[in-house]
Computed example of a mutant assay.
Amino acid sequence: MNKLIFILCLIVSSVGQAKTINDSIDIPESVSREMLDDCDACGCAAGNGSSGFESLLNPQFIGIKYFAQHYKAKENLFVKDLTQDQYFNTLQVWGKIPLTEKLSVYASLPFHFHEKRTIQGDININGIGDLNLMGIYRIINSKDNIHQLNGGLGVKVPLGKFDEKGISGVNPSFQLGTGSWDYQAALNYKFQKNKLALLINTDYTVKTENRKHYRFGNQWNYAATGFYQITGTEKTIVSVKMGLQGEVYDTNKQFDEVMLRTAGSALYGKLGFEASYKKFSLGGEVMLPTYSNLAGGDIEAKSRFSVFINFGI
């Protein structure tokens, strides 16, 4: 309950700031945002559950996002049933600042508080996560703004704590950070006409070996999301969205030895909304798995939920 109150306080605080600052921006019609889901999948540190970086609602912003994930896992190797509930929660500060007309810099800093409920009792970890930095370049932008293609290159700085004891569990991704410098490449395509928009995103993360000689598997993410604007004025835009998002994980390694039952994949269906008023923007999304085969079947994806509040700067 204290964690929930803490989250709500931060959100309310952001809303108040947005009302005092965001009162003079001309938001283009029919423009929607695909959230920068940099919170990591299957542990919020060992993977990167990104669905690409974004299409722009405002050219520059700063905000707060809350992201929650639920998984079922085997209690240990000697049981067949998935009885252990694992909850991964992230509160993230993020922002995007343009350097030139085509080049922007994106950054996010997460705070994780995770929990898994075992027969012996609940286990909780919390703390700062890994810092994400990415340069975003606009490759194509048609004169009528119907087509846009963006590319990005990024790095994850290992600020989050990596606990070597944690890799002995069913889910080695129950961590605050990978302990390694990881690198990401991303592409984002947007088609937009009148009240309709389509976003296609893909990114690939290369993960390196950390000081404990452990290396989480590389990860490929992909997503397709459709938007429909249900209302729009000079100051206000409200859109709904739905789509699919997939993630593919390679095997983890330790001392260059493959760790069995650490690879996997999952596919989610998602439904959400995004709304803006002047510089202030709000969005939410629910994701449910249509397919899940994580850690050789030892982990099952259950649900995800996210909400963000942003304002232009």
Rank of each mutant, 00 (worst) to 15 (best):
D122I: 09
D163N: 15
N218S: 11
F311A: 10
L288D: 06
N22Y: 07
T208R: 06
M259I: 15
K116M: 03
P59H: 11
N126T: 12
V170G: 00
Y189K: 01
K193L: 08
Y214P: 01
K3W: 11
I140G: 14
A223D: 01
A275E: 03
K165P: 02
N76T: 08
I139M: 11
G63L: 04
K279D: 14
V248K: 05
L82Y: 00
D85V: 00
C9P: 01
S142W: 08
V258N: 14
R33Q: 03
N89W: 10
L99S: 07
A223L: 05
K19N: 13
G63D: 02
M287C: 12
E115R: 11
L153Y: 14
G297Q: 03
T231D: 13
A45I: 02
N218I: 05
S292R: 03
I5E: 13
V206Y: 14
A301D: 07
I25K: 10
K190R: 15
L57P: 01
G47Q: 01
D23C: 12
K165N: 09
S24H: 12
L176N: 04
N218A: 08
I5N: 14
T205S: 12
G297N: 10
R117T: 05
R215L: 00
N252K: 06
T178Q: 08
G166F: 02
S168D: 14
K279G: 14
T231S: 12
E209F: 11
L57D: 05
N132G: 09
D182K: 07
E164R: 10
G297W: 09
P110T: 01
F280L: 14
N201M: 12
A41H: 08
Q192T: 15
Q175F: 06
T178E: 04
T262Q: 05
F53L: 15
A18G: 11
Y183H: 05
G129P: 03
N218R: 05
L159F: 12
D81F: 13
K116Y: 04
H112V: 02
K102C: 03
G179I: 10
K207N: 12
R33P: 03
K302C: 05
H147Q: 14
G16N: 10
N171Q: 12
L56R: 11
N171P: 06
Q192K: 15
F273V: 00
V155C: 05
K19Y: 11
L109A: 03
D182Y: 04
K80S: 15
G47H: 02
A223M: 05
K193T: 07
T225L: 08
E164L: 13
S13F: 12
T208L: 04
D38Y: 11
F191H: 08
P98F: 07
E234D: 10
A41E: 09
A45F: 01
D122M: 09
D23E: 13
G284D: 03
L10C: 09
P98Y: 07
L82I: 06
G297D: 09
G47N: 07
A185S: 01
E164N: 10
Q229G: 06
M242G: 00
K116T: 04
K72M: 15
Y277H: 07
K235Q: 08
A295V: 02
P110A: 04
N48T: 14
T118A: 15
K65M: 12
L99N: 06
V238D: 01
A46N: 06
N310P: 00
E285I: 10
